[in-house]
Simulated assay, not measured.
Amino acid sequence: MSQDARTEALDASPRLFESDLLDKLSRVHHLTPVIVYCPIILGLLIYSLTLNSVTLVLLGLVVGYLGWTLTEYFGHRYLFHTVFALPFGLGPRFQFLIHGVHHIYPNDPLRLVMPPLLSAPIMLIALVCARVLFGATFAWPALAGFITGYVIYDCVHYWTHHGQPQSDFARLVKRLHMLHHFRDAEKGFGVHAIWWDYVFGTAYQKGDTPGTRAV
Rank of each mutant, 00 (worst) to 15 (best):
G75Q: 05
A203K: 03
I104M: 10
T160C: 13
V199M: 00
I40P: 07
L79I: 15
K174Y: 11
E8S: 11
C38K: 10
Y153L: 06
D184L: 10
R111C: 09
L61T: 03
S167Y: 11
W68F: 07
F169M: 14
L176A: 12
I104R: 14
A12H: 13
I125R: 00
L172C: 11
L118M: 10
D197I: 01
L51V: 10
L31K: 05
R131F: 07
P33S: 12
A139I: 04
R171M: 14
R15F: 03
L117A: 10
H102Q: 12
I194D: 07
I122C: 01
Q95Y: 04
R93M: 07
M114C: 05
V57Y: 12
L10W: 07
L70M: 11
A144C: 09
P165V: 12
L25P: 01
L21C: 00
R6G: 00
V28D: 01
L143P: 07
I98Q: 12
F96Y: 15
F17S: 00
G201P: 08
G201R: 09
T32N: 05
Y158V: 02
C155R: 08
A85I: 07
D20I: 01
A193K: 02
E18L: 04
P210R: 00
P39K: 13
H181R: 11
R93S: 09
I46R: 15
G75S: 04
M1Y: 01
D154F: 04
F96H: 15
L49P: 05
C38R: 12
G100H: 02
H157L: 03
V62F: 09
L59Y: 09
H177G: 06
L172Y: 15
S19A: 00
L86K: 00
V54P: 14
I98V: 14
Y150H: 08
A185W: 10
S119N: 01
V132Y: 08
T209M: 08
L117N: 05
H102V: 09
R77M: 08
W140H: 12
Y158T: 06
V132D: 07
F200G: 06
V132P: 03
T137F: 11
L133S: 11
Q164T: 15
R131I: 03
R111T: 08
L110Q: 12
L31Y: 06
S167F: 10
P121I: 02
Y105Q: 01
G75M: 08
A85G: 04
L49K: 13
D184G: 12
G207I: 00
Y150G: 03
